[in-house]
Amino acid sequence: MAEVRSGPLERWLNRMSAARWRRAARGARTSTLRDLRRRQAEARTLRQHLDALLHVADERLALPLVGNTAFPRPHGMEWAWRPEMWRGALPERGHAAVERRQEIGGEVTVFHDCTISELTVRQVRNTRETDLAPYGMRLDVFRFDGSFLSVVLDLPPEASQGLKKRHLIRLDTIVETEYPIELFARLNVRHGPNTEQLVREIPLGEPEVMVEFDLAYSKLNERRVEKMWIDLIFEGPEMNQITIRDLTFCRYPRADI
Rank of each mutant, 00 (worst) to 15 (best):
R60G: 04
E78P: 00
R20P: 00
A43G: 07
R37D: 03
V56R: 07
R20I: 00
L65P: 02
P83Q: 06
A25I: 06
D35A: 13
M16E: 06
E42Y: 11
L54K: 04
R15K: 08
A43N: 05
P64I: 09
L50E: 12
A70Y: 08
A62L: 07
R11I: 04
L46W: 08
R11L: 14
G27R: 13
R44E: 09
G27H: 09
R29G: 07
R26L: 13
D51Y: 13
D51C: 15
T30N: 05
H49S: 11
W81R: 01
P74G: 04
A19Y: 01
R82Y: 03
E78C: 05
A41Y: 05
E42S: 15
R73N: 02
A19F: 02
R73M: 13
R82K: 11
A43T: 12
L54M: 08
N68K: 07
N68I: 03
D35G: 04
W79F: 13
A25F: 12
Q48F: 11
R73D: 00
A52F: 02
A57T: 10
S17R: 15
V56K: 03
M77Y: 01
D35Q: 13
V66C: 11
N68H: 07
W79P: 02
G67C: 03
P83T: 04
T30P: 01
A52C: 03
H49C: 06
H49A: 12
A43V: 08
A70F: 12
V56M: 01
L53Y: 09
D35R: 15
N14H: 15
R22D: 13
A41N: 04
R23W: 12
Q40P: 01
S31A: 13
W79M: 06
A43P: 00
L65R: 15
Q48T: 11
E59K: 09
A80E: 00
A24H: 06
W12D: 04
R82H: 04
L36K: 10
Q40E: 06
R47W: 07
M77G: 02
A80V: 01
W21M: 09
E59G: 12
T45F: 14
N68G: 07
H75F: 02
T45L: 15
A19C: 01
V56P: 00
R47Y: 05
L50K: 12
T45I: 10
L50F: 14
A80I: 00
A52K: 07
A24Y: 06
T45K: 14
L33N: 07
M16S: 04
R82V: 14
R26V: 10
L53R: 06
F71E: 01
R39N: 05
H55T: 09
G67I: 01
N68E: 02
D58W: 10
V56Y: 02
A70N: 07
A52G: 05
